[in-house]
Design a binder for these strands. Structure first.
Lengths: 217, 217
DNA sequence: AAATAGATCATACGCCGCGTATGTCAATTG
DNA sequence: CAATTGACATACGCGGCGTATGATCTATTT
């Protein structure tokens, strides 16, 4: 039987990825010593070079894993409501909230781009963008939003979301900052809505961030 | 006379910053050898450590220089038109165009955050944000835009701009991508406008990107 | 004016981390 | 059962960084 063999290999890969993810997330890519975190997985750099080629390869694998998780979470969130627009809004909210997590900030948003180049080029990041793009495409077909290029809108919205998240996460008063960011984000998103003949529909966005106070300034 | 003395020191600092800026911009921070680029400036690492403490310190100085240039360019652009909104739009345009420059992408947008942490924390990046924030504050006072927190809006808009710029710069077809991005950006920005009683004013944004076709899809 | 102090920069040393080349053992294959 | 391949560990060398030390020059002090 050649099963335990394959399983051992998969386990080795998984252990390396897990150890690297931990090290990259806490120390950062540059400060994480390959000798150290491979040892913490009960292995050596030999295994690392065999499976991933080099340190960058491991980072790619770690990011791919994280991005797959993010994408899965987004898909669940956006598919939940029957209202498409609400699904999109929830997706944006979830996106911001994920970008608040230190591990994602550090590995995906900071070290990733520096080491692997612009995220819009990786297959992984495209997954999240594609998810958001599809949501916008459906909204466009439905007539809910104006006729803009869905991918372009997705990238702008995700860019705004990510910056908002980093701003919030590194703020002295994350609560207050979050309130301000969400309100402004709400206004920007309303720019996408097709309002012909129905000027203001604030309720559409009322559940952007349920846990946060939405009362006007 | 103790003038040449001061001048020599300033010149040394300037030479180090220039050499580092060149190396960081082309090779990237991690690949840039301190021995190499100090030598290219006719100096050694001794001078570097004396003036800037370490490699990070030099990066900070380089970024401060670049950011000062960016801020100056933005101030000029935004002050030119008599129309405040037009000034803001021009400022956004200039922001995107600067973010297309490889040196700024590499040093300020990718390596900077990875090495120095989130940009919203550095004094430098705040300069650009503050400039945009002030523009939005005036527009808010004027009643041209809705009452949102100016800093929040500035950060969202700059985030969207930066992502758009990176997307464009790394695209296979930058021309086409730019068209799509600008149109979507236009729609989002219109979300900020206070449209009470005057629903559509597309001409307000007509000069977002004069060199690029603005015709509808 | 001689001496002292402090600043500017170069030189020299050691450490650590990465990449590669090599070795070893187990598992698969015929 | 011999041969081969794959999975990992070990060993070596190189380069980069940081620091400690040294040399030179300038500005003050008396």
């Amino acid at each position: 039987m050649h099963r335990p063999r394959k399983e051992m290999i998969a386990e080795t890969r998984a252990k390396l990825i897990a150890a690297a993810r931990q090290a990259f997330g806490t120390l950062g890519y540059a400060e994480a010593s390959m000798d150290d975190f491979t040892a913490s997985a009960g292995l050596t750099r030999g295994a690392l070079y065999h499976h991933f080629g080099d340190k960058k390869g491991l980072l790619q694998a770690v990011i791919a894993e994280i991005d797959a998780e993010m994408s899965a979470r987004l898909k669940v969130v956006s598919a939940k409501p029957d209202n498409l627009w609400q699904g999109f809004v929830d997706e944006c909210t979830a996106y911001i909230e994920m970008a608040l997590e230190p591990e994602i900030q550090r590995i995906v948003l900071r070290d990733g781009p520096a080491v692997l180049g612009d995220p819009s080029q990786w297959p992984s990041q495209s997954t999240c963008i594609r998810s958001m793009t599809e949501s916008l495409q459906r909204l466009s077909d439905e007539g809910t939003i104006l006729a803009v290029d869905p991918e372009a809108a997705a990238r702008l919205v995700s860019g705004a979301s990510l910056h908002a998240a980093q701003w919030i996460a590194n703020s002295n008063d994350p609560e207050a900052t979050s309130k301000k960011a969400v309100k402004a984000f709400k206004v920007l998103l309303e720019g996408l809505l097709n309002l012909t003949g129905r000027l203001h529909q604030p309720d559409r966005l009322s559940s952007m961030h349920p846990e946060i106070d939405q009362s006007p300034a």
